[in-house]
Amino acid sequence: MVDVTWGGARVGAQDATERAKALNKLRLGDVIFHAVTRSAALLVLLLLGGVMVALFLGSLPALTTFGFDFVTTQSWNPVTEKFGALAPIYGTLITSFIAMLIAVPFGLLIAMFLTELCPMWLRRPIGIAIELLAGIPSIIYGIWGLFVLAPFLQQYVQPALIATFGNVPVLSSLFAGPPYGIGVLTASLILAIMVLPFVTSISRDVFDAVPPVLKEAAYGLGCSTWEVMRYVVLPYTRVGVIGGVMLGLGRALGETMAVTFVIGNAHKISSSLLAPGTTISATIANEFTEAVGDLYTSSLIALGLILFVITFIVLAIARYMLLRIEKRVG
């Protein structure tokens, strides 16, 4: 038999009871550590449950007062205490939709550049730069949007849009009204710029997961770069790309600061993209601390609940799809 030593204490081989005690201590430590780590893991679940329950309880007064009308009506009037969430929900969906419409093609094309066209020595620096940009806080994008992008759009882009599409049947209503600078279009552009690094870095990772043999075989048959992308890489990575896009969409839906600066916070649905609007997160950020009355606060929390449910569904789908491609690779 050997001596048991731990933590400076040394127990002789002869002393059987001391020895048993020391071993028991070790065993106990093991059990405790297991229990502690397990409860920490369960705490993560509890956190999500807690968010759900707290938001639900907080929004109960609004939901019982307005019922289903809450999500179908547009009026948002703190004076008469009539609240409907349709305008913020519409704003959230439309800004995210336009942002993805811009960011996805750009992101995929940049990822194509990084994986197929870019010279080897440039790949790492550009890749790192994009990942660093993905980490920049959204408030930075917001302040830039407010002071640089919005005035630029107001002076040059929006008048041009109004002049160009003013007489085109459908588009004229999309680009109607005076050029405010801030509004739905500006918010969508800021969101697109913000989401772009995400979409790019995920698509690049997914494209990198394509086995080189497949691409080499296609090139060997005489395929052009575009044909390799279109008929080999994209079909192979479709699930992963969709997952990455959904992940970006989740970010865009929940984004607060970048949007709040430039959306204009107007509770009405306008057909024009140049008009000010609002999103769920911008409404909460702008009005929560000033909300007087339980019903007002509760309505804002109900907005938060709706946002959480929407993003939860989108993110869950995204994770599920990314998991599928991970399984295929590894």
Binding site: V44, L48, T256, A316
Partner: peptide, 17 residues
């Protein structure tokens, strides 16, 4: 799975919570 979702959950909801 839940942790990955929390990772990109909207931070304003955390504030409300």
């Amino acid at each position: 799975f839940i942790n990955d979702i929390l990772l990109s959950a909207p931070s304003i909801v955390v504030g409300l919570f």
